[in-house]
Structures are given as C-alpha cells and as structure tokens.
Amino acid sequence: MFMAEQAASSRPNTPPPGGLRQFLLSQEGVLLLLGVAMVLLLATRSDKFLTVDNLLNQGRLLAEIGLVALPMTYIIITGGIDLSVGSIFGLCAVVLGFSWQVVGLPLELAIVVTLITGALAGLVNGLFIVRVGVPPLIMTLATLAFYRGLAQGISEARSVTGYPEWFFGMGQGDFLGVPQQLWVLALATLVAGIILGLTTFGRALYAIGNNETAARFSGLPVDRYKLLIYTFSGLMSGVAGYIFVSRVTTTRSDMGSGLELDAIAAVVLGGTSILGGSGSILGTIIGVILIQLLKNGLALTGVTTDATTVVIGVVLIAAILFNTFIQRRRAQ
C-alpha cells in the first residue's frame, strides 16, 4: 500500500497534498462526515441525545478506551499489536485496590504503584518483543493470559470497595464543568498527536511500520523506540485502569476484558492500517468518539446493546472497505 501511495504522489496530475478535498477523502475526513451525519440522524430520533449533559457523560465513558487507543495507534503504526492492554488494565485495577487495602499503602502511593505496575507490564512485553524477537501478537497473547491470571491470583475473586471520597474525583468529578478524565484524555491526545505528527520520534514510527529493516539501516534506534511505545501502552492502560476504578468505585479482577478489541477497533476504524506504516491520532480519537456515540445514540433510540454490537462490527468492516477502495482509486 505504501508503494502505491508513493507512486500516486509522484504523479504530476494528482492534486497537491493538503486542502479540503484531500482531507475529505482521507479516512479521518470520511469518518468525520459519517460522524456528523450520524449525530444529526440520531438527534432527530431522540431529544436526549444531543444535549450537553449526555455528551459530557459519554465523554466520561469513552475516556478509558481513548487513553488505551492512543499508544495502540503508535504500536499498530509500527506494525505491531498489543492484545494485553485489557489484562494490564485489570491487573492495575487489582494492584490499586490491594496495595491500598491489603498491603496498607496510602492511596496516593498506591496510585503511583499502579502506574508503575502498568509501565512495567508494558516494558516486559517490549523487552521480549525487542530483545528475544517474539512476534508482538504472540507475546501479548501470552501476557493477555498471564496478566489476567496475575490479577485473578492476587485478588482471588475478592473485590475492593470503600475508597475514600476524594478518590472518586478523577472518575466522577468535574473540572470547569467538564469531566476530569476528559481533560486527561484531551491532554494525552494533544501530546500524543504532536509527538506522532511533529517529532522525529513520530516519523520514525511510520518508518518502522513501513520497512523495519530499512529503518534500522537508516540508523533509527528501532529497538529503543519499540520498547518505549510498549511501555507507554502499559502505562496508559494503568492510567485508564485507575480512572475506571475511580469511576465505578470498586475493583475486580475481570475489569477490562475485551478492552483490547475495543481499542483496536477504534484505532482501525480511525484509518490506521493494521499492517503498519500509516495512521493518525486524530483518526483514532474520531474512531473512539464515533463508536461511543453510536452505542449511546442507538441505545437512546431503543436499540439493544447487542444489536449495537452488530452495527459496530458492520461499521468497522465497511469503513475499512471504503478506505481500501479510496486508496485503490487514488493509486490508479
């Protein structure tokens, strides 16, 4: 696909990059149009949908997936994948609860321990992938089982509740009228977007995804970068786990099961190629928002959750189909 794009951009009669037309034909543009159309359609079906309250509340719900989807975008751009994020999420939730209630750490310190746990879990993934050469899919499949197993083993099916009041601020509180976790997500998105789009580190990720050997021979520190993004993925899963515990006020070991697939779906829907080499943070965030609004809007118009699952599956495949169609047209 990369070759095709290159061939296309070297043609004299293709429009110069940038411009509205270019954006509208990109996956992000298509998604944005689709999203706006969908919002308008759903707004006519339910008057509760397009209200500030509802939308902010949806923001609360999508923050966790969003936070996990950001590093997932990086990883998928390099041609890798991280299936263990849901399990790290659950492990971090359990570590948070048990290091506070059972070990007896102060809650502030427990949060720090949780984040370190997440980063370490990601680092372990990265080390095996980079140093030993285990394919990312297999490595994170193994740790998908292992981290979830650790969470189950530590918690032994007990849940932790009874957190102090201040702890719920992150999950339930507002800052300047907007849910706190949305600020976190917005900040993280901004930073992640800038890093990916405007730094050499970001460009290197694309280079790795397009041709890892070439990237290595061009002197890019491929191993260090990969280690970084998998660690980052673990860390963000930890942050998301912390926010989730704060939102639902309890800790259980099965938290975050299937989160990895939701995050991957959002990333892929956002136009990031699962084969690596292309994608953007903007697309990912639009993907995350689109899925959440679709869920919420359909639920408000009386569609069951399970039928919504079907719709999301169809949208995912259709969006990718449309994207490949456009890519092929452009390549011709």
């Binding site: 697939l261 399970d306 079907v310 599956g313």
Partner: peptide
C-alpha cells in the same frame, strides 16, 4: 474483529 461483534451481537 468485525465478524466477532457481528456474530456475537446477532446471536
């Protein structure tokens, strides 16, 4: 991934 949600929900 898409089929998974389609089948699951449809079922």
């Amino acid at each position: 991934l898409g089929m998974r949600s389609i089948i699951f929900g449809g079922m």
